[in-house]
Amino acid sequence: MARKILTVAVLAALAVLPPVFYLTGNAFYLDLATRLVILGIAAVSLNLILGFGGMISFGHAAFVGLGAYAVGIPAYHWLYYTAGDWAVSGLAQIPIAVAVTALFALLTGLICLRTRGVYFIMITMAFAQMVYYLIVSIEEYGGDDGLVIDTRSQLPFLDLDDPLQLYGLAYVSLLVAMGLVAMIVKSRFGMVIQGAKGNDERMRTLGFNTYAYRLTAYVISGAMCGYAGALLGNFTTFISPEMMDWTRSGELMFMVILGGAGTVLGPVLGATVFIVLEEVLSSITIHWHLPFGLMLIAVVLFVRGGLMGLFAVLFGGRK
């Protein structure tokens, strides 16, 4: 019960506060919230496999980057689709982002999921590095310097150039992502994934092809993260390989752990605290990485179960 109240409170705050700030002349806070919500979607997608499936992907930033480039590259080539009077490039870009990342997840997942433990952590990172270096070496799309997206995705009924509408899309997407994960986790499929996390051998003995289940979860997670990347590209209108640096993957992992892995709200909470802290600390000192890193270590050492775990200790409400 307490957990439900917290979820509603956090989501309500995210729905109300940023637009209010924006309308009262603090556009900056809406920007912050948009980034937060988009990264929240990425963290939710990572949590599906990391928190519920026990697959520690250290390469999720690659999906974010691929999703963003799936928006940027068609825009760079001026491929704007029109349907009747509508300009609807987004209806091509966003499905491309999802399809490309799903395919990438499928191909890499086939290999990654053969490995376990640290090998899995490191091979997911290796694939992310491959994408990173691939993009760096394509000079046509800016290489190291990145690519400016001149025109945001055009969607029917939505104008992404309007910060409020962009935020609205991101926010609704976050709700859908959370709902999707909650649904998956409760389903038979989700039970198998969680069972495989606990004891893979037992699940296989029970007759489940856990490899296929885990691969499916990995693809869903990758595609969801690619969608977040497409939003991020539309938000920043500047994309660069730096988005897929391995430290970015580390940050996504931290958001999940900070908030509480294996909970539906946790990653969103983690992303919120992460982005706000980053903002506050970096406004105080340029050496903000120092307190930030210390905090990261402290969270890992002392806060088991992340913020959701802390909340459960304080208010009860553990499932």
């Binding site: 640290v118 952590i121 992992m253 931290f254 752990i257 990261l296 050492l301």
Partner: peptide, 14 residues
């Protein structure tokens, strides 16, 4: 290993 990866990631920043 997840905790170790994260904590030492923090250590890099520090």
């Amino acid at each position: 290993h997840l905790d170790q990866v994260l904590a030492t990631f923090g250590l890099i920043l520090v």
